[in-house]
């Protein structure tokens, strides 16, 4: 699904990623962990072509295609979805209108017929009721005045509607209470059908207990210093990041 080789990325003239190698097969769940500033967010942002990230060296192949040649829109329509740590508020754009537009752009890319308003509403309501989400947010402007938790749930709703192939989740659990974390985890697990892949950034064991990773990667100073399985995350929970590279 995703093959990253020797990736070097800088932001504002400072090198953040210093030779990342990472391979994600279809259906695999990978977790990135590390101290703040280690490069975790930069990696997922680079995969989704964020404007801050400048690739200086290395390659990223996505479904055997050179990802670095694709712009953010193309990457999204080919199935890459990044949830934001702090989703921006856009007053004046209705949330429902935004979701419908995004879905129909994807459907157009896949040469499927666009959904009309009634069909789309039916789809959205089925998702919000299945996962116990409040659909009042649909009537509001995009993320405007949303609490941190509401913003994260709105990211989840987008995931459920757009059904991407590669999910990049940047601390989707931060700011959520226990019940909300369960809702988010249930939603994400519903998408993991053995073909979809997940690359997740989280600090919380609770999230890892609900979405058990196949691989855990520790980032330090822009490099992956250790890779393990779920037991590595459990060890981190006890010892912290100090000495973990040894």
């Amino acid at each position: 699904m995703l093959d990253i080789k020797n990736l070097h990325v800088q932001i504002n003239d400072k090198e953040i990623l210093k030779g990342i190698n990472l391979n994600i097969q279809p259906g695999e769940i990978h977790v990135l962990m590390g101290v703040n500033g280690s490069g975790k967010s930069t990696l997922v942002k680079t995969i989704s072509a964020h404007y801050d990230c400048v690739v200086n060296d290395g390659s990223i192949k996505y479904k055997d295609e050179d990802l670095l040649k694709l712009n953010p829109t193309q990457r999204a329509n080919k199935g890459i979805f990044m949830s934001f740590q702090n989703p921006v508020e856009i007053p004046g754009i209705n949330n429902m209108y935004f979701l419908k537009t995004a879905l129909n752009e994807k459907r157009k890319h896949l040469e499927k017929e666009e959904l009309n308003a009634a069909s789309f509403l039916k789809l959205v309501k089925s998702k919000t009721s299945e996962f116990n989400m409040d659909d009042a947010v649909l009537k509001r402007n995009l993320n405007e005045g949303f609490s941190g938790g509401e913003k994260k749930r709105n990211e989840l709703l987008q995931l459920l509607i757009l059904e991407p192939d590669l999910l990049l989740l940047d601390e989707i659990d931060s700011g959520l209470d226990i019940d909300a974390i369960k809702t988010v985890a249930t939603g994400i697990n519903s998408l993991l059908d053995g073909k979809r892949s997940l690359l997740m950034i989280t600090h919380y064991e609770r999230m890892l207990a609900l979405i058990k990773p196949d691989f855990v990667h520790i980032l330090e100073n822009g490099e992956i210093i250790k890779t393990g399985d779920y037991s590595l995350a459990l060890k981190l929970g006890k010892t912290g990041f100090k000495d973990i590279g040894e």
Partner: peptide, 12 residues
């Protein structure tokens, strides 16, 4: 704001 929209597959 622009990036948020295009990262969801909406054309620029």
């Amino acid at each position: 704001e622009l990036y948020y929209l295009i990262s969801r597959g909406i054309s620029e």
